[in-house]
Nucleic acid binder design. Sequence first.
DNA 1: CGAAAGCGTAACCTGTGGGTTACGCTTTTG
DNA 2: CAAAAGCGTAACCCACAGGTTACGCTTTCG
Lengths: 134, 134
Amino acid sequence: MDDVVAAIADPVRRQILDMLREGPLPARRIAEQFAVSRPAVSRHLRVLRESGLVRDVPTGRERLYHLDPGPLITLTTWIADLRDAGDRLAGWERRLDALTTEVYRARRDRRRTGTGTGTDTDIDIDIERRENTA
Amino acid sequence: MDDVVAAIADPVRRQILDMLREGPLPARRIAEQFAVSRPAVSRHLRVLRESGLVRDVPTGRERLYHLDPGPLITLTTWIADLRDAGDRLAGWERRLDALTTEVYRARRDRRRTGTGTGTDTDIDIDIERRENTA
DNA sequence: CGAAAGCGTAACCTGTGGGTTACGCTTTTG
DNA sequence: CAAAAGCGTAACCCACAGGTTACGCTTTCG
């Protein structure tokens, strides 16, 4: 998956993939769309090839490149998991935001009025998390 | 979207996002999970912050980071479009593969038997594409 | 109030990703 | 068969991402 995301990271390579959405293209066709030199594009194509996002079919003296979005599936699922977590978190994150705001107010008050006058509620936040022994 | 994919590109930053899936964490907690120095992690956090994938809530002397997978949506749709194109292409790519194979056979035969003996079918492939005046 | 904790930033160093030119190989063409 | 077309690779260069140490600032603690 590291290869794939690295491949996607470059704007030129992303544009190449966009280009191939409409069908296979020989290297020359791809290269002439960019301002950069042809060897540069050739190396971009190699990166895409090695990441599996693109496959080449040598055809005579040409090399036809065609798209293969298969390897992107791992990235997609990773993102999906992240999104799910985000949604799940949304609720108690809001609650946590409220809490921190509360603490702010409490502490500011405490400082302003000197050590608590007695009516001030003292809130302790203690965020426990299992040790993520990755 | 360039920011987002660049942010995702680094393995450390990806792991940070994974960490935050289970809830907000102060910078220190995040940093101590990695072999790299704390300032390094701090800069990773900045990149994530500027890409919008993470938000920080200053809480006392700590800084609570929480996940925000929102910006990933653009990347997700881009990938989806790519996949759709790939699926749509699958059919006539197979046909094209068949064609190129055919051409191979034809050309090899032609070379082997000298200039076509007459029964040899000569296949011309002419892939036309609208100029993609990006 | 001084010491320590928690973070971010600045300055600096290094590996590497991406660009260019030069070159070589195979396939088509005249 | 020689010339040209189409690609890939090697060697080299440079900007920059990512790492480290040193430092400064704010907040908590004794």
